[in-house]
Design a protein around this nucleic acid. Structure first.
Lengths: 229, 229
DNA sequence: GAGCGATGACGACAATTCTGATAGTCGACG
DNA sequence: CGTCGACTATCAGAATTGTCGTCATCGCTC
């Protein structure tokens, strides 16, 4: 059985998470502040912590720092309020495993939890990363790097590239792409796909690396460098 | 058992619809042009026709016109290419029961089909219409009128008003609205709800009709004219 | 009833998504 | 090899969605 520790000072959020996680068949423990949370982890038997950054007295970062002083193993998922890239960076530097920005849905948080647990179970840090030449897509973290540089894709752009990456070097038809990215099942004259192909190319192509090739009349294909010639 | 006649000249679309409908437990008949389709309906046993407007020889309108000359009962769902408000008007005038604009998803077309069948089964033309004073929302057709005038709401605006209408004169909490419209399950400081309340008010309120009232600290309430005072 | 803190309304703006138009490119065919 | 038509790339712009900041308003306390 997997036990998840919920650390948040707001009772509403705590209860919601509690119910949701119990419903999803996790055991839960609750803590309303950092001190309680540290105690709970020390008592052992916690497989993952969900920690709100914004808490009075001991905030999420302080908790994380103190926890990591003794325990570098237990995974931690941070709940960050709003848009705070600094917070994110700071959290990851201190050893958080992932962060979720508010507002978020049940579905999203459950996905993140199972991704973290999957990683931590299979020992090391094997995240789901799709690679094609200089492109690395970390699906769990929703991050992309090309030649080691972070690239910013919108949700739709990301999804499109993800589908192409999953079928590297194989043809993906227009129909498949429309279905998997836009949930459009029927033929139509929409040009939204072409537009997004263009957006993605602009963001990841450069000089001698242009892996998204057109297969006229059929679809597109993401070519790995080996195949390119 | 319900039998649906699919009329489209493109084999691809035809097959997709065929598979989808069989999967959803409908019987299907296929026709690749208007003449075949008229034959099939005359043979009896067709409960609903799905007809593409764009067909060579006899197009969707011509088919509809000829069908309606003898048969005013069998419901017809038109597939319209792209944005053609004229087509829509023309189709409905000729006695189409609904139209779906390309591109569309399986889910959407199945929803439309069951809506039409529900209506046609329960005899008359009882569509799902939510009313509150001068507001009429036709959920099936995704149309709204206020004081008899069509009002244009975006998808999110529509959904928000729909949720309020479903609970007319009852309080709907911020949490319920965030969950049902945005699929956000957790507390947060987002102000997206307030922004959209503002958008909807701007579109449907006027002089002496301002039914969306604020319940401070809790949520909103759509008040019917009787209750307003 | 004045002051205050919390809450809501809404304008301004940024990002994203999608449409429609236009220009370019490919490949088939003569 | 040139032409034509179909298909694709890309741009500009509209619509939609969501964020942030500011100001107004509510209801409470003194």
């Amino acid at each position: 059985m997997t036990t998840i520790l919920i650390v948040d000072d707001e009772p509403g959020v705590r209860d919601l998470l509690h119910d949701a996680l119990e419903n999803a068949d996790y055991d839960t423990e609750l803590a309303s502040n950092g001190a309680e949370a540290l105690d709970a982890v020390r008592r052992g038997n916690v497989d993952l912590c969900i920690v709100d950054i914004n808490m009075p007295v001991m905030d999420g970062f302080e908790f994380l720092e103190r926890l990591r002083a003794h325990d570098t193993r237990t995974p931690v998922l941070m709940l960050s309020a709003r848009d705070a890239p600094d917070d994110v960076a700071r959290g990851l530097r201190f050893g958080a495993d992932d962060y979720v920005r508010k507002p978020f849905s049940l579905e999203e948080i459950l996905l993140r939890i199972s991704a973290i647990l999957r990683r931590s179970r299979s020992d090391a840090t094997d995240e789901l990363v799709l690679v094609c030449g200089p492109i690395e897509m970390n699906v769990d973290r929703h991050e992309i790097r090309v030649d080691g540089r972070d690239v910013d894709l919108s949700a739709t752009e990301f999804r499109l590239l993800e589908v192409l990456l999953e079928r590297t070097d194989r043809l993906v038809t227009r129909e498949q792409l429309l279905r998997e990215v836009w949930n459009i099942d029927f033929d139509s004259e929409t040009s939204v796909l072409d537009t997004y192909i263009s957006y993605v190319r602009r963001k990841i192509h450069h000089d001698d690396f242009a892996p998204i090739t057109t297969v006229r009349g059929v679809g597109f294909k993401l070519m790995s460098p080996d195949t390119q010639r």
